[in-house]
Design a protein around this nucleic acid. Structure first.
Lengths: 230, 230
DNA sequence: GGGGACAACTGGTCTGACCTCTTGACCTCT
DNA sequence: AGAGGTCAAGAGGTCAGACCAGTTGTCCCC
């Protein structure tokens, strides 16, 4: 029950029906209107407040905050799909971020990975190469990057990766065909693996770029066409 | 009251007292042990579940998840300070991420900013140059990057920035002296501004690097010394 | 020994009451 | 008439207790 209330209020906020600064009805009133108990709406509002989408003050009114200014990366999944369909603008920004961050992570991983990293990655790649299923390949690629992020030994990049994966995984089935080209380039991945094993950050950065860029530019132009003629 | 429970459970999880996979006591028992009502612990656990730190199943036990694998970037503030002091490892990763992402954002902003961007940034820089207070300068620098991120027109980078700022702002007073060197380089910021106005992404990327790198390398070596001899 | 029913958990939800704090209107004093 | 304080209405915060709805493990019967 609280989940439904949370969803409704969240939709109101991200869709702009509830403008920043606007005051929400009182918890009791909301409970009455939505036909649920007050604890249910209270829990929903508290969760909204935790994600910095609402400002709830004891004794005063609960007001809407500007999510564009305060929301964290964990909101991404809710912004990526709106009304059941992908939002091209947000998808584009994910691709851009991936292309910017991936090589940087690879560079750090090359510095810190050690010899065991390449071995583990090779194993993952072998599993990837062994299947023809797009979704399964996608999962192996995800595991590959998971290991790279681990090797980079960076809490921030680790949390970023988790947040991005949380946005990606729910739509994995739909996205797998689009990403099939990238994940099919096993050669590029093998080059990246040996670059990571070599310990040279710049080589690894370039190799990661070579893995990510083709699909990125391809999908970006696809998104552009989509935005022009939906 | 729920906040305190949330804090306690969260501390247990991030400090490792509650291992991943471990089952929590039932809500009723927790309420009894902690001396609070069940709604209070329920709200706390639900908020933990929302941040993917717990797995709560109807009818079954509530178990601890591996936050390193599932937590999002919004957890960063809680990981940056542990027991009242900065965690060097996490601080290092923030600096690294900043150095990697900042120039990428600047490149996008240069492509999309338009002529109004440089004018707005110049105004912010004038305000920065006009004050001698470290904290105030820090806030102006934050506003500067806020405008750059806006110009980059990327939802992912916007949310990343929000999350990083949420980790940074609470410790701003303590961090301002450390960052004073960077924020004092008004010339480098002015160069970045004109690069952003020129519309050339690579020039902007290089200029952003020149702004961020000096303080980054300086602080990184300071952190290294700190970790060797705490 | 295997399979199904039941009982003892778990979390999920609601009602209704009481507390504390904010807010704004109203009244008083200047 | 305006500035100040007072107070009541209404906001969120918390609790107790009850009941619903799933899961799980045991125990009994076949």
């Amino acid at each position: 029950m609280p989940d439904e209330v949370f969803d409704q209020v969240l939709s109101g906020v991200v869709d702009g029906e509830l403008a920043p600064g606007e005051a929400l009805p009182s918890e009791r009133r909301l409970a009455e209107v939505l036909g649920v108990s007050r604890p249910a709406v209270r829990e929903a509002l508290q969760r909204m407040a935790q994600t910095r989408l609402l400002d709830v003050r004891h004794g005063g009114a609960t007001t809407v905050r500007d999510f564009r200014r305060h929301a964290g990366l964990d909101l991404l999944p809710r912004l990526l799909v709106r009304g059941g369909t992908l939002v091209p603008d947000v998808a584009r920004s994910i691709l851009e971020a991936r292309l910017a961050v991936g090589p940087a992570v690879a560079a750090l991983a090359a510095e810190r990975g050690g010899p065991t990293l390449a071995a583990a990655l090779t194993e993952t790649l072998d599993a990837l190469a062994a299947t023809d299923d797009d979704v399964e390949r996608q999962l192996h690629a995800l595991a590959f990057w998971d290991q790279v992020v681990d090797a980079a030994d960076s809490m921030v990049f680790r949390l970023m990766f988790n947040s991005l994966r949380a946005a990606y995984e729910p739509a994995l089935d739909a996205l797998a065909p689009l990403m099939a080209a990238e994940v099919g380039q096993v050669d590029a991945y093998r080059l990246l693996t040996s670059a990571l094993g070599s310990g040279d950050p710049e080589t690894a950065r370039a190799a990661a770029d070579r893995v990510l860029r083709p699909a990125t530019t391809q999908l970006l132009s696809a998104l552009e066409r989509l935005e022009e003629a939906p």
